[in-house]
Amino acid sequence: MTFSRIASIALLAATVSAVATPALADNHKHAAKSGGTIVAAAAASPQHKTLVTAVKAAGLADTLASGGPFTVFAPTDAAFAKLPAGTLDTLLKPENKGQLTSILTYHVVAGKVDAASLIEKISAGGGQAVLTTVQGGSLTATLSNGKVVLRDASGGSSTVTTADLMQSNGIIHVTDAVSLPG
């Protein structure tokens, strides 16, 4: 790999990391400093209350608090609010636990995928990288205006707004939309 290509990847990684909302990034960095888990970091974030509620309703809290490592693309409360009216309430009902679990595990990739390695994969893939989720589906990552964008199986997209929130059992990348497995 040429120096110019390495410099471009480093610049893109820095750009992705720099788009953070300051309060959110500070909150997550504090959780990361404590060596907490992905679940603990999400629980400490005022912008991820809906995600935490959904993770608990799906029975995934213990799994996401375990050894991992996991990469989680974590939608904010505002991202969940973009879903059609009543969707979240329906998903949180006990009889819809399977569907909720499918959606949540669609946001999780096994292993640690930090911004720099994701951008490198996108570059090596001719402008896109396909990530296999724990749910079994795939998310397609691309770059748009220096930001990582994920395209889901339903044709929707989400943008990583905060990257590389390192936890003891993986990495969180905050997104502005809920990804749907199709």
Rank of each mutant, 00 (worst) to 15 (best):
V130R: 09
V130P: 02
V130C: 02
V130A: 15
T132R: 10
T132S: 12
T132M: 01
T132E: 08
T133K: 11
T133G: 09
V134Q: 14
V134P: 06
V134R: 06
Q135E: 15
Q135G: 07
Q135Y: 13
Q135W: 13
Q135L: 10
Q135I: 14
G136V: 02
G136P: 10
G136T: 12
G137S: 07
S138M: 10
L139H: 14
L139G: 12
T140F: 00
T140R: 13
T140Q: 10
A141E: 10
A141M: 10
A141F: 08
A141Y: 12
A141S: 14
T142M: 11
T142P: 05
T142C: 06
L143S: 10
S144D: 13
S144K: 15
N145E: 11
N145C: 03
N145Q: 12
G146D: 11
G146L: 10
G146F: 10
G146K: 11
K147E: 12
K147S: 14
K147F: 06
K147C: 04
K147I: 02
V148K: 08
V149F: 00
V149G: 08
V149C: 06
L150A: 09
L150S: 02
L150I: 12
L150V: 13
R151N: 15
R151G: 07
R151D: 08
D152C: 09
D152K: 01
D152Y: 03
D152E: 02
D152H: 01
G155D: 04
G155E: 03
G155R: 04
G156A: 13
G156F: 03
G156P: 04
G156N: 15
S157E: 09
S157D: 03
T159E: 08
T159S: 11
T159V: 05
V160E: 05
V160P: 04
V160H: 08
T162K: 01
A163W: 01
A163P: 01
A163H: 03
A163R: 08
A163D: 02
A163S: 10
D164C: 05
D164I: 04
D164H: 03
L165S: 13
L165A: 15
L165C: 07
M166W: 00
M166N: 08
M166T: 14
M166L: 10
Q167G: 02
Q167F: 02
S168Q: 06
N169F: 02
G170V: 09
G170Q: 05
G170N: 08
G170Y: 02
I171A: 03
I171T: 14
I171W: 00
I171R: 04
I171V: 14
I172Y: 03
I172W: 01
I172G: 02
V174S: 09
V174W: 00
V174G: 06
V174F: 01
T175S: 13
T175C: 11
T175W: 00
T175V: 15
D176I: 09
D176S: 07
A177H: 10
A177Q: 13
A177P: 05
V178G: 04
V178I: 05
V178M: 05
V178E: 05
S179F: 03
S179N: 15
L180E: 07
L180P: 06
L180T: 11
L180Q: 07
P181H: 04
P181G: 09
